[in-house]
Amino acid sequence: MSSILPLKTILLQTLLLLVTIAIESWVLRNRLNLPRKLSIMYAAIVNLLSVSISWLAFFAVEPEFLPPTLKNQLIHYILIGRLSSSASQAFEFWAIVIGFAIFFVTLQVKVQALYLLQITGAIPSRMVQQDRVIQRHKRLIIRREQTLAILAAHGLSHSAMLVILVILNLQLLRV
């Protein structure tokens, strides 16, 4: 192993996951009238899933599909903590676009994965009663409610994440 280890990644991701699960389970519980345990389980599963899928996507894209300049900027940012000074303005623009894209893609992952896990019976839900999926129109009502709740939860948890990341990156704290 090299002497440069991604320990901060592990700590930060664990912290952000815990905060996210706490916030999202609270939102889901209030909006959907779920039992406490079930709401925590929903929030935990969708977030663990979206983090896993993000990692897999990162490993799939990083070695082959990034143009060299972008890859260099990524390496520079991850290791040194800021963009290489050879970066152009356009790069920062694209970084923001990619940030938004990740927000909406992970939202979709959460919405679809939760629904699929529910109707396949992998996790308990109101949509499956006595091992049978309930009727389509009833299901649609629950699903719409649930999608809106996930959107609210996702937005709130990502705002919290943004606040945490900004606080951690304040120059004041960098002695």
Partner: peptide
């Protein structure tokens, strides 16, 4: 110098 990184630390 990796002290400003959010991802890695030097051991």
């Amino acid at each position: 110098d990796v002290s400003r990184s959010n991802f890695v630390v030097r051991v």
